[in-house]
Design a protein around this nucleic acid. Structure first.
Lengths: 197, 197
DNA sequence: CCCCATACATACTGGTTGGTATGTTCCTCA
DNA sequence: TGAGGAACATACCAACCAGTATGTATGGGG
């Protein structure tokens, strides 16, 4: 065995199926079909469907969030606001029509599972916290260097930015319209501009 | 029979159960238990679980949206921006801790069902359109009377406002924190202020 | 007074679900 | 070389699901 190839295929199939159907509606048999393995393999690597879902969050969604939404904010060659705007624009460009119709995988899971399972809630909350911290730090850095207004609270503003982003994706998902995403994104970028001093 | 009392009880129980569990995970038997009736009654009034869900949107969620989010915007005694701010504040105050943990029923259904059922998508989209139109009209009125900046597009801005509101509720739901809702709401109100000329 | 539709209640069905118990292959290490 | 565990595959299970078929009480109209 290379390095748990079967496990990785299970994770990927589970991620796709959960993204399509939601966690509760995702059928284990459908996941097994997609991964091309059997139930024995699944329960060899995961103790239950819920633990499979947890692993999808920990090992699939978290790395995506970090690489496309968080780490680009560390690139210090651009001023903070431009860095935020560029990160958002680049992440948005990456989405194809199908992904827009399916929405943000983190938000989907958070909305579906956080009221009914504490394990999911803890994990999604952890991811949101990491995201918020990196935006908060970026805003604070801009305040220190004088490029961002000092009358805003970085943590509150970061919270609003994340909320607006998730809201935009939700709206676009429901409208099934890439155009709606861009129009809504314009609002976010405009708001970011209003933060500069 | 007064006026379909049983039907109303079914709708209410279905609304509650769907709000708690989501539509697909909502069990008909649980709904029947809550309503205190049997399967015969349910299938006397509704042809399927899906039609029950449609009815919840049409006859339960839509009236709520109209009365607490749309109609207050017609109150012309306040200037447009104040009207928007007051509507949002009042709607937010109405939410108790449990409702915050369960999120916006419209957004919940839209997120869960719009990618997999066109009937749900059409209905949630219709509700969002009505909401957007009333906000757009309010913004346009403010532009005409000179109290709102003329360099913003009312429709795009309305889209962003709705997105931000839904985002705030989503964030608060995941954080299970009324405080998060207020902090995030501050962001929305601040954004609305930035629209005045 | 009877008839029949309305308004439910009860009992049941086929299909699907997550989960388990058991079997089999193969590779490693003693 | 053989013992044993890792890595799966196959077959099965009870519980639950939405939906249906049938039964029954009741109230109003002819």
């Amino acid at each position: 065995m290379t390095v748990d190839k079967t496990r990785r295929e299970l994770l990927e199939a589970a991620y796709t199926e959960i993204h399509l159907q939601g966690f509760q509606a995702a059928s284990l048999n459908a996941i097994l079909n997609k991964a091309g393995v059997t139930k024995g393999a699944l329960y060899h690597y995961f103790r239950s469907k819920k633990e499979l879902g947890y692993a999808v969050l920990d090992e699939w969604i978290q790395p995506y969030l970090k690489s496309t939404w968080i780490e680009p904010l560390n690139n210090q060659t651009l001023p903070p606001i431009e860095r935020l705007k560029q990160t958002i624009s680049q992440a948005a460009e990456q989405l194809d029509e199908q992904e827009i119709q399916l929405g943000c995988p983190l938000n989907n899971l958070a909305q579906e599972m956080s009221p009914i399972d504490e394990g999911f809630r803890r994990r999604t909350d952890k991811l949101y916290q990491a995201w918020l911290e990196s935006i908060t730090a970026t805003l604070a850095e801009g305040q220190e260097s004088g490029s961002i207004r000092k009358d805003i609270d970085p943590a509150d503003t970061a919270l609003f930015i994340v909320a607006a982003l998730e809201g935009c994706i939700s709206i676009a998902k429901n409208a099934q319209s890439q155009e709606a995403l861009f129009h809504c994104g314009k609002g976010v970028l405009g708001y970011l501009d209003s933060l500069s001093s």
